[in-house]
């Protein structure tokens, strides 16, 4: 099928875009990268009367570090995060490890991070990182600006706290500090598929003890999940030497956290090729692996720092 007909506007400022979205009695859609929207329009699952193309609004482009956060404008494409040094510190590493799982290069050169928050697919890598790290979604609407904490933003598949007349202008993520290591592990059938399950982790260790940990679960419920129960089991735990074998011993704190994430945090929705039990098992295994990756990442950061002659 081809998209049904619609009106098309190309605002040059955020104010013009918001005005277009607020027009009376019209079902309007923002067009960012179009890598989800145009597909849905092909399938005619979405039939907007008005499409507001935001690609020519210069103020939405670019990302910048301000204070202890990274502000990602609504036109920043997925591809911008492919290099680990595009964003400082462990956050840059986490985003670069996640981004290669989002489709493939020609999709990543158009799709945007903010668009993923707009689309709010339960299998979105960015959205799970957002809830795990307490990101903020900045929106502008007819009544002005609002900053929506990611934890209250996702209401279900493709359902969010954004009002239809509001434009996402940016996503804000906290930069991660020096004592933090990160990991991202995804399980999926092919390059072209969304994740069956994926896990993001940021592990902070002071004096050998886990002082903070964030675990985000991708496609493990009807919305992105922060695995708080699993995080709780780890706080205050001594990290100790990492086990060497391929498989984590069942008694290791990371393996235990994985089982808790699977039983208490995840609420998997069955899909073809991945029923709920399968997904729970995948969550348990991947949480353990991702935490181990984060601990290894932290170890190599500390080694680099100690080797630093300054």
């Amino acid at each position: 099928m081809k998209p049904a007909s619609f009106d098309y506007v190309v605002p040059r400022t955020v104010a013009e875009a918001v005005q277009a979205l607020a027009g009376p009695g019209r079902t309007a859609q923002v067009l960012a990268g179009g890598q989800s929207l145009i597909l849905e329009m092909h399938l005619q699952r979405i039939r907007p009367r008005l499409v507001v193309d935001i690609n020519r609004i210069p103020e939405l482009d670019g990302m910048r570090v301000d204070g202890d956060g990274l502000r990602v404008g609504a036109l920043v494409r997925h591809a911008a995060f492919e290099r680990a040094d595009a964003v400082p510190g462990p956050l840059g590493t986490l985003l670069s490890r996640a981004v290669v799982n989002i489709a493939h290069p020609p999709i990543r050169s158009r799709g945007t991070m903010a668009g993923s928050f707009g689309w709010a697919h339960p299998a979105s890598e960015w959205c799970a990182i957002g809830v795990a790290l307490d990101a903020t979604v900045e929106v502008t609407g007819p009544d002005g600006e609002r900053a929506l904490p990611a934890r209250d933003y996702f209401l279900g598949p493709h359902r969010t706290a954004r009002r239809p007349q509001e434009l996402i202008t940016a996503v804000r993520l906290p930069l991660l500090g020096g004592h933090t290591g990160v990991g991202f592990v995804e399980h999926r059938r092919t390059h072209f598929c969304f994740a069956q399950v994926a896990v993001a982790a940021a592990l902070t260790v002071h004096d050998g003890v886990i002082s903070d940990v964030r675990i985000g679960l991708v496609n493990s419920a009807d919305r992105p999940v922060r695995a708080r129960a699993a995080e709780q089991t780890l706080l205050g735990t001594e990290i100790g030497p990492l086990p060497t074998g391929r498989r984590l011993p069942d008694g290791h704190p990371f393996a235990r956290a994985g089982r808790v994430a699977a039983q208490e945090d995840a609420a998997p929705v069955a899909e073809p090729y991945a029923d709920a039990e399968y997904k729970r098992q995948a969550v348990a295994v991947l949480v353990g692996r991702t935490l181990r990756e984060a601990a290894t990442d932290l170890g190599s950061r500390l080694a680099v720092r100690q080797g630093d002659p300054r």
Binding site: Y8, L31, G34, Q35, I38, L39, D53, I107, S109
Partner: peptide, 19 residues
């Protein structure tokens, strides 16, 4: 359907001509 748009590979089935 891949083509180059301003030098970058894109899916011509996921871009509107007016864009």
């Amino acid at each position: 359907c891949s083509v180059l748009m301003d030098g970058e590979a894109v899916r011509a089935c996921l871009v509107l001509a007016v864009q």
